[in-house]
Amino acid sequence: KEEVSSHTSPETGIWVTLGSEVFDVTEFVDLHPGGPSKLMLAAGGPLEPFWALYAVHNQSHVRELLAQYKIGEL
Score class of each variant (00 low, 15 high):
Pro33Cys: 02
Gly34Tyr: 00
Val16Ala: 09
Arg63Thr: 10
His61Asn: 06
Pro36Trp: 11
Phe23His: 08
Lys38Tyr: 08
Thr26Ile: 02
Lys38Arg: 09
Thr8Asp: 13
Pro33Lys: 00
Met40His: 07
Gln68Asn: 08
Gly34Leu: 00
Glu27Asn: 12
Val4Trp: 06
Ile71Val: 15
Ser37Val: 07
Leu47Val: 08
Glu27Tyr: 05
Glu21Pro: 01
Ser5Asn: 14
Asp30Ile: 05
Gly45Ser: 10
Gln68Tyr: 05
His32Cys: 01
Val29Thr: 10
Arg63Ile: 06
His57Phe: 00
Leu47Ser: 05
Pro49Ser: 07
Pro36Arg: 13
Phe28Ile: 00
Glu11Pro: 06
Leu39Gln: 03
Arg63Val: 07
Glu3Cys: 12
Leu39Cys: 03
Glu27Trp: 05
Val29Tyr: 01
His57Pro: 01
Pro36Gly: 15
Asp30Ala: 09
Gln68Glu: 11
Leu31Arg: 10
Pro10Ile: 10
Ile71Thr: 09
Val29Glu: 03
Ile14Asn: 03
Phe50Leu: 12
Leu65Asn: 08
Thr17Lys: 04
Glu27Ile: 01
Lys38Gly: 03
Ser9Asn: 13
Leu39Gly: 01
Gly72Asn: 13
Asn58Val: 06
Ala55His: 14
Leu18Gln: 12
Gly35Met: 04
Glu3His: 10
Thr8Leu: 13
Leu65Glu: 01
Glu11Val: 10
Phe50Met: 10
Lys38Thr: 08
Val29Trp: 05
Ser9Glu: 14
Lys70Gln: 09
Pro10Arg: 13
Val29Asp: 03
Pro10Met: 12
Ala55Asn: 15
Glu27Met: 10
His7Ala: 02
Glu64Gln: 12
Val22His: 02
Gly19Ala: 11
Pro49Val: 05
Val4Ala: 11
Glu11Trp: 08
Gln59Tyr: 03
Ala43Trp: 04
His32Leu: 02
Phe28Arg: 00
Leu41Asp: 11
Glu64Val: 08
Leu53Phe: 04
Trp51Val: 00
His61Ile: 04
Val25Lys: 01
Glu27Arg: 11
Thr26Tyr: 01
Ala43Thr: 07
Leu41Met: 12
Val16Leu: 05
Glu3Asn: 13
Asp30Gly: 08
Leu31Lys: 14
Thr26Phe: 02
Pro49Met: 05
His7Trp: 01
Glu48Gly: 04
Pro33Leu: 10
Pro49Ile: 04
Gly35Ala: 05
Leu41Ala: 10
Val62Ile: 05
Leu41Gln: 14
Ala67Gly: 14
Trp15Val: 10
Leu41Asn: 06
Gly34Arg: 09
Ser60Gln: 12
Leu47Trp: 04
Ala42Tyr: 00
Leu53Gln: 15
Leu31Ala: 06
Gly13Thr: 05
Val4Gly: 03
Tyr54Gln: 07
Gly45Pro: 03
Thr26Pro: 00
Ser37Asp: 15
Thr26His: 08
Gln68His: 09
Pro10Asn: 12
Glu11Thr: 10
Lys70Phe: 06
Ala52Cys: 03
Ala67His: 12
Thr12Lys: 13
Glu2Tyr: 10
Ser6Met: 15
Thr17His: 10
Gly13Asp: 07
Val25Arg: 00
Ala43Met: 07
Leu41Lys: 12
Phe23Ser: 03
Val4Asn: 07
Phe50Asp: 01
Glu11Phe: 04
Glu27Thr: 11
Ala67Trp: 09
Glu64Trp: 04
Trp15Arg: 03
Val16Asp: 02
Leu39Thr: 00
Glu3Pro: 08
Leu41Arg: 09
Glu73His: 11
Val62Gly: 01
Leu66Ala: 03
Arg63Lys: 13
His32Lys: 00
Glu2Met: 14
Glu11Tyr: 05
Asp30Cys: 06
